[in-house]
């Protein structure tokens, strides 16, 4: 099996959030990124954070319809991690250009920007879900994320009929939307 083909398969299973794929990519790449971060004023925790954020970028990219990776995973991961770390160093005013060989890099500026936008939205959704409380959170998750039907939901949450559950779900959804869009529009 050619290396190119193997990597394409790996990315397909990564897009499906399979642990085996994460494990394989971790084993192949973690040490490289760890070295990059540690040798450039970072700690072990920074290395872990940056590497995991990089994998999220790769995951989002692998999931997108227009997905196309025209370099090795290692090159891509290294480029993204370097970009992310540089940004973090700059924001912490600890700026010092990492020493490395630039020719091994690919352009990732656009992917990182997309990721930052998505990451912001993720944070807003997390804080909105944290604010609506129970049972709203579980109710909405059951319907929108786990795709349960209203009959199951109303029996599980102890509503007398599915109309009551629908009513409650509507109220919860409106609150969540309000919280989400208030912050979302604030930043745009």
């Amino acid at each position: 099996m050619s290396k190119y083909y193997k990597e394409a398969e790996l990315l397909k299973s990564l897009a499906k959030n399979e642990k085996s794929a994460i494990d394989a990519i971790y084993r192949d790449n973690y040490k490289l990124i760890q070295q990059l971060i540690i040798n450039n004023n970072g700690t072990e925790d920074d290395a872990r954070d940056i590497f995991q954020e990089t994998l999220i970028v790769l995951y989002q990219k692998a999931k997108s319809d227009s997905f196309e990776l025209n370099c090795q995973i290692k090159t891509y991961v290294y480029s993204v991690a370097r970009r992310l770390w540089l940004k973090r160093l700059q924001s912490n005013r600890r700026f010092e250009t990492p020493v490395d060989n630039i020719e091994e890099m690919v352009q990732v500026e656009e992917d990182v920007e997309v990721h930052e936008k998505l990451d912001r939205q993720y944070g807003i959704m997390r804080s909105a879900l944290g604010k609506i409380g129970e049972p709203c959170k579980s109710l909405l998750e059951a319907f929108y994320i786990h795709n349960k039907n209203m009959q199951d939901i109303s029996s599980f949450f102890g509503y007398t009929n599915s109309d009551n559950a629908k009513n409650q779900k509507y109220k919860c959804l409106m609150r969540l939307k309000k919280l989400f869009f208030a912050q979302y529009k604030n930043g745009n």
Binding site: K19, I22, Y26, R27, Y30, Q35, Q52, L118, L140, I145
Partner: peptide, 30 residues
Amino acid sequence: LNRYATVKRFKANLYDVHHTLKETGDISDI
């Protein structure tokens, strides 16, 4: 909402893998 849920699951998997690899010694502090 769905993207939030999938990313959350992915993050949980990342944590798991990191800890397992650390426990088995496949990755270590440098």
